[in-house]
Each structure stands twice: as structure tokens, then as C-alpha cells.
Design a protein around this nucleic acid. Structure first.
Lengths: 133, 133
DNA sequence: ATTCTTGCAAACCCTTTGCAAGCTA
DNA sequence: TAGCTTGCAAAGGGTTTGCAAGAAT
């Protein structure tokens, strides 16, 4: 999680904007928030910094169903998954410890190497469920 | 699952190519296979038909980590997952029965409703692993 | 005959890249 | 000073759209 990136004002602005956004946010929207706040950072810089933040493990990235990457500051250090509300976008980090073992077992069974896994859970949170009567 | 689409030769070609591809395939790759087979269908038509097929429920669509949509004919009624080789693209259908229960349990625990899950496993198959020495 | 589908090219959107100027360490 | 970072504009890649010609019903 340690980074050797330079501490530029743009990087600080981007990290700060990510903190303000309490859930997953697209690079474009993040850029919009930054500009709305009155800060000046180029869109290409937003992408460049997000890339570094993901590489260093400080930020999580997932792909939404429109093909946009969504970014979020990572609270948990360990491997985890997400439970997201399809209506309001609220996200919870969850852990399914047995899953890691299953993934390894299945990989071994089929003679696959270097297996990665992605699990995403989506549903409707209690708040949004109630709001729909 | 019933459709009211017209039965054009292009549509038949596209469905047939989807059947030949035994797993998830991108629209671009599907188009490649169709042309490799000697058939003539415009890329825009491939996209148009895939859109209809997804809308009618005859085809499943998921987004990969590069932001491409991947399509698959919904053959199996039962829910299952995939183990795909990152090198050659070979795909195996796998089942992780306990996962369904876990998903339900987590949903209940967090008061989420109508929870769906997507699990994708990727690795390097034995053949590709051996080919790299 | 009507309505949907096809196909081409252009448009779109998100993201990445080339490169000169600026700033951090 | 050396090298990463920034910023602009342009390119790239996947997907969608406008519209006229062609099929299916």
C-alpha cells in the first residue's frame, strides 16, 4: 500500500475528491466534482493518478455495466468483495473466506494455474426497498 | 424467452456463431468468427442482434475487466460459473453449490433484497502453461 | 404494403498516448 | 539536476446511431 508517487497538488486534489465521494465513482464524475469544487486538474491527470492509486492498492476499481471503471478508496487491506445496491449505488465490503479455498481447489482440479477470481453481489438495499413502498 | 424478431439470414448466422463459441465471446470476436467462416454480416448488425437477444433473454451478457461486453447463449437453465483461460480463452463451466447459500446469507445479513451474483474465475490452463515451458 | 432489419459511415464515450513544459525530490 | 507529472490535443477501441436500401411478414 506504500506508494512512491510524488506529492503534487493535483494528486492531493484527486485523493481528497475520492474521499468526499463516499462510494464508487467514475473517473468522469470525479473530474466533474473536482471542477465543481473549483479545482483545476486535467482529465488525463485524473486517469493517470487513478491508475497509480489502483496499482498501489490504495484504490479499488470495478467495471459497471456500461463499461465505465468505478473507483473507490479502499478501506480494507485484504482481498474482499462488494455488495452493491443497484438503486442507490451504496456499497458494502464483504468477505467470504471459504471462497478463496474453493477457487484454489477448482483451479487444481482443472489444472489451471495462477487463478484470479472476481465476485460481485448486487441487490436492493433495505432503504431503497422500503422507498419503493 | 420468446422473440418476435424477424428470421433473417444474418440473425441465423449470428445465433449459429454464438452456439459454436462454447463460452462467453465479445461482439468483436463473434464478428471475427463469422467472417472467418466466410459469412457476411455487418458489425453493426452483430451489435443490433446481440442487443435483441439479450433483451429477449436468449443471451447472457457480462462485462469483462477491459470494458467489453461478452455474450453467451443461455443454454443451461441452472446457474453456474466459468473458469476461463486468460491465454487461449478456453472456458469451463463450473459449479460452486455453497456459493448460492452464502450469497443468500449475506443478503439477509445486510438486509438486501433480490441479490444477484457474478463470479468469474480466470487462470492459465495446463496447455498454455506448458506451452510457456 | 408495411414495418423491421441491414449496412455503411460517422458519431460517441471512455480511456490512453505523445510530447513539451513544469514541478518534485 | 534528473526524472516523474501535468496538460493539451489527438488517437484508439468498443459501441451506438442516422438514414437509405433491402427483406420479412
Amino acid at each position: 500500500m506504500t506508494t512512491n508517487s510524488r506529492n503534487t497538488s493535483q494528486r492531493r486534489t484527486i485523493v481528497s475528491a475520492l474521499d468526499d465521494a463516499a462510494g464508487f465513482i467514475s473517473a468522469q464524475d470525479l473530474y466533474g466534482h473536482i471542477r465543481a469544487r473549483g479545482d483545476q486538474v486535467a482529465l488525463a491527470t485524473v486517469y493517470a493518478q487513478l491508475k497509480k492509486l489502483v496499482a498501489s492498492g490504495d484504490v479499488d476499481a470495478v467495471m459497471n455495466e456500461r463499461g465505465e471503471s468505478l473507483y473507490r478508496r479502499c478501506a480494507a487491506a485484504s482481498h474482499h468483495h462488494h455488495l452493491a445496491c443497484r438503486v442507490c449505488g451504496a456499497t458494502l465490503e464483504i468477505e467470504i473466506p471459504p471462497l478463496e479455498g474453493w477457487a484454489r481447489a477448482i483451479a487444481a482440479e482443472h489444472h489451471f494455474y495462477d487463478v484470479h477470481h472476481v465476485l460481485e453481489l448486487t441487490g436492493v438495499c433495505a432503504t431503497c426497498h422500503d422507498a419503493a413502498h
